[in-house]
Amino acid sequence: MGGHAPVTNDPDADEVYFQYEDIDQQQESYVVGMWAFLVTEVMFFGALFLMYAIYRWKWHTDFYLVHKQLDWQLGGLNTFVLLISSFCVAMAVHYAQLKKPKQQLICLGITLACAFGFLGIKTIEYSSKFEHNLFPNHSFVYADHKVTSYGMEKKDVTGRAAGVEHAKKVKKPQEGDPNRARLFLSLYFAMTGLHGLHVVIGILVIGTLMIMIARKSPLITDYVPTEMIGLYWHFVDLVWIFLYPLFYLIPK
């Protein structure tokens, strides 16, 4: 069970798992299953987008002012990197369908490189946020106000030692209500963080697929595994397509 049991009554068929009648049924089941999973992913991020939409609608001026803390050039670069990776996955599926494993591996390799590149750029962005105390934990400071989830402390922290040091590090002027800044950055870290987690999972999955293809694993008999992983990766790209304008490019 679970292994490859050739179906006795259909000698021409490719090998299929025991629960399926033939290879068509197996592949169609995979496609339906994958799309059902993607629907759950849409709803997963959809809830976050709903939350974002409500808060953006409510506090649009502050969100506009706070979003300037984000680096739209780095974000744009990341968008482009993910676009390339998405394109390469599409090409990998294309080559898999044409049964050209070499080109397929090259395409997947570029995808993997792009995924690491994305995470690298993300790390640069995140670390600058940490440095400026913009990560919404207990040390969050915005516009010289210490803000916790109970709201900001009325005291100005500039006078304190930490505050002075903090003021030196900040490059960009911090405008807008510090409370809303914390809200905005909470959403930013929650959404990009979960997206980043999906990228990490994508790296693991694509890496595994590449190893299996390179080793000519018997589990990879056709293009369908590549296509399924491709669908996942396109979804990751899709989320970023919305995240980028929503966080980095807020119009006034």
Binding site: I23, Q26, E28, V31, F87, A90, H94, Q97, D222, V224
Partner: peptide, 14 residues
């Protein structure tokens, strides 16, 4: 959709 003869999207289109 049938596994054996899926639609291959032409490279130019991609």
């Amino acid at each position: 959709h049938s596994g054996g003869h899926a639609h291959v999207i032409p490279q130019s289109k991609l």
